[in-house]
Amino acid sequence: MARMEVHKDHCKGCGLCIDICPVNVIEVSKEINNLGYHPAVYKGEGCTGCSLCFYACPEPDAIVVYRKD
């Protein structure tokens, strides 16, 4: 099963990953992170491992995608 992971303290909450996700499995967290943003968060299931969120994310270490587990 593929999955994505948001390193929440490196997320600037831009929402580009949420916007690009074709299966709508990422959302905005209510939490406020270290940088002062509402980070993105994986809903927990449904990721296809397409990896678009990884490439759409401007931060080097905010998103990891495991394409196969």
């Binding site: 490196h10 600037k12 909450g13 831009c14 929402g15 580009l16 270290n34 940088l35 943003y37 990884f54 490439y55 759409a56 994310c57 401007p58 931060e59 080097p60 270490d61 905010a62």
Partner: peptide, 22 residues
């Protein structure tokens, strides 16, 4: 102190391009 994050604003295209190059 934020030495794992870029200096770019949220949603900036530079970060995306940096990642593709790296």
């Amino acid at each position: 102190r934020y030495q794992e994050d870029t200096h770019y604003c949220p949603g900036c295209g530079h970060g995306v391009l940096h990642k593709l190059i790296a």
